[in-house]
Structure formats: C-alpha cells, structure tokens
Design a protein around this nucleic acid. Sequence first.
DNA 1: CATGGGATTGACT
DNA 2: GTCAATCCCATGC
Length: 195
Amino acid sequence: MTDRAFYGRSVHEVARDLVGCVLRHGPTAGRIVETESYHESEPACHAHIGLTARTHTLFREPGVAYVYRSYGIHALLNAVCEEEGTGAAVLIRALEPLEGLDEMRARRGLQRPEDLCSGPGKLTQALGIGLELNGSSLTDGPIAVEPRSEAPRLAEGPRIGITKAADLPWRFCDADSRHVSRPWPPAMRRSRVAA
DNA sequence: CATGGGATTGACT
DNA sequence: GTCAATCCCATGC
C-alpha cells in the first residue's frame, strides 16, 4: 500500500512512479501501464479555474481519489497529489488486468484482456469504481495502490483527448505493455514487445 | 435560468 | 475516418 508521502510530491514524479504499481478494488486488480499528470497551473486541469464544488477534491490532501463523470457517461479516476491546497492529480488511463478477470468481463461485456482496462473510462467500469468513491482514500480506503517491485521502461508523449495545453508531454506509458490506450505514443509505434 | 462543452467510448462508413 | 450518447457544472444573460 502506498502512503500519503508518496503522493505529496511533484505530480509529474508521482505519475511516473505510478506506472508499474498495482491498482486494486475488491476482487479486481490490474497493473497501471499508463498515466497523465495535471496541475492547476495549466488550463487542461480542472483545478485551473479554482476552488468550486466540482474541483474541491483536487485541492484536498495528497492520496485522495478524485473521481468525476466525463462526457456524461464515464467515471475517471485520479490520484490527488502535492500539498493540500494545491490542485494537482494523476489520471489513471490504463491497466493490465491481473485479478478478477471474469468479474471485469461481466462488467464490460467483453472477453479480450487487452480490451478490459485500456482506457480511463474502461478501467473504472471493469473495477467497479464509481462516483461514490470520489474523495475516498487511496492509502486507507476501498481503492488500494500497491508499490511496484521494479520500474518499467517508460514511453512519454503529449496528453491525449484534450483541447487545452495539448502540447505538454505529461503522458507516461509502460513502453513494453500492449494494454496502453490508443493512440499509442509515437515512441511505441515502431517495434512492439510482448507485455 | 438556459446553454454548451468535456481528461470517452463504441458503433458505424 | 465520423458521430451520437448523456450529464454535471461553469458561464453568461
């Protein structure tokens, strides 16, 4: 289990260090293979507009889960980082499924492991993470994050799916995983190795 | 109080 | 490649 100090650092460092960690909720678990970092100083971050009812969670203490609804349909999971009062978080974008695959298949209505968690909305559905977990603790709550044993090789690139500050290279992928969401970062498109 | 857009996904051409 | 689904909330009148 990660501790609060792990999250109380630069959001970009945390985003890098979360790749390779195991995310767990109930009987389902997966290895984090893709993250993006967001900081209040740039307009793509929800916290950029300041403290509102929606962004309240982003300004809380490090190690809290920020879960919000995207496009009216999907729940997206973030880990709140840096000091309390600073709006910054790491978006968990993809997992390599490890445990509870059948539970994930039932929730997703799909079979292939690489389709179960290869996107931020997909993984919350697969793990059963909903908006009710917004504000819950990642260090002592229903969602757990377990430290990695070794650091994966990272592929970095611009964040995707956003219109503002789209040039910042704050997307971090496990360069050797085939469970990363599409499109893959340029550095990963040439040669592929099995996960 | 009305409106528009978004850190997405899946289905379709 | 395009596009609709669907809803919270920020913004503007």
